[in-house]
Design a protein around this nucleic acid. Structure first.
Lengths: 140, 140
DNA sequence: ATACGAATTCAAGTCGACTTTAAGTCAAGT
DNA sequence: ACTTGACTTAAAGTCGACTTGAATTCGTAT
C-alpha cells in the first residue's frame, strides 16, 4: 500500500502519516524508490492511535503504550490511562450538571445559588497532572 | 484589590489576568496610576471562566457566554454547551471501557477481539465540530 | 527626595499537533 | 524518451492560551 491509499482509508492526510512515522507511531515496511510502502497492520495501528487521541492522550503517551516489539501494548499503562480518563469523566459530568443548572437556575445572579458556588469551587481546583484532550478539528 | 491580590487568591499569574482583560473576559474597575484595580466580582468571574475552561470551552466561547451587560450569562448557549459536553462524556466513557478492555483482553492481538474492533471503528469516526479541552497544566 | 520593588506595555517566544510551501525525485503511461 | 502527477524532504507557518523578556513608569517606604 502506498501512502495515498493509507490516507484514503484512514482519512488522514499524507502529511500526518509522515509526521506519525517521524514520531515513531507507525512504520513503513519499505520503499519503492523514495515512496513509502505500508502494510495493513498500519491501519489497525492508526485505529489504535485514533482511539488514544480521542481518549485525550498525547502522541507521546500513545507512543509509550506501544511496546518496542511492535504490536503489543503496555497493559498497565492502559489501565492507568483508563483510570485517569474515568476521573476526567466524573469531572466533566459535574461540569455538565453545573452548566445545566446555571442555564435553568432563576437566581438573578448565579453567585447567590449555593449549588453553583459549590461547582465553582470544584472548577477552581487545579487540574491534575498531564494534559487533557487537544487539537481535534472538524475536517469534513 | 490590585492585580497581585487577585493573582494570589485566584492562583492565576498576573500575566494571565492581563491577558484575560485584553481578551475582554474580565475588567479592571480603574487604575491607580498605571496599576489596575479589580473588585471582588472579578473573582467570581474568574471562577466562571475556570469552570468553562475545565468543561472544555475556549476563551472565545466563554466570552460569548457573558452577555454585554456584565454579569449575566447566555442561558441557551449554556444549555447547548452542556449537551455538547454530554456527548463528549458518552464518548469518553466508551474510550475508557475500550482502554480497560484492551488492558484485560487476553487475545494476543487486540485485533482479533470483536469488542475492541468495534471500539476502534468508533474512535476512527471524525470528531464533531469544535475543539475539546486544551492546555491544562499543573502549575503547582 | 530618592531608591526600590512592583506594575506596566509591547513584542516575541513556547508547546503540541499538524499543515503548508518550496524545491526536488521518480514510477508509470504514452 | 518524455511528461506528468504523486511522492519526497526540510523548513517554516498556524492555532490557542499563555509566558517571558526588555524597557519603562510609579507608588510607597525611608
Amino acid at each position: 500500500m502506498d501512502i495515498a491509499e493509507v490516507a484514503r482509508i484512514s482519512g488522514l492526510p499524507a502529511s500526518t502519516l509522515r509526521y506519525y512515522e517521524e514520531k515513531g507511531l507507525i512504520r513503513s515496511s519499505g520503499r519503492v524508490g523514495l515512496r513509502r510502502q505500508f502494510d495493513t497492520a498500519t491501519l489497525q495501528r492508526l485505529g489504535l492511535i485514533a482511539l488514544g487521541r480521542r481518549a485525550g492522550l498525547s502522541l507521546d503517551q500513545i507512543a509509550t503504550m506501544f511496546s518496542a516489539d511492535g504490536m503489543n501494548i503496555d497493559r498497565d499503562l492502559l489501565r492507568a490511562q483508563a483510570l485517569e480518563l474515568d476521573r476526567r469523566i466524573q469531572e466533566l459530568a459535574l461540569m455538565r450538571d453545573g452548566l445545566l443548572h446555571a442555564a435553568d437556575c432563576n437566581a438573578a445572579s448565579h453567585f447567590e445559588c449555593p449549588k453553583f458556588l459549590r461547582l465553582l469551587k470544584i472548577s477552581t481546583r487545579k487540574p491534575r497532572t498531564g494534559r487533557i484532550g487537544k487539537n481535534f478539528k472538524n475536517g469534513d
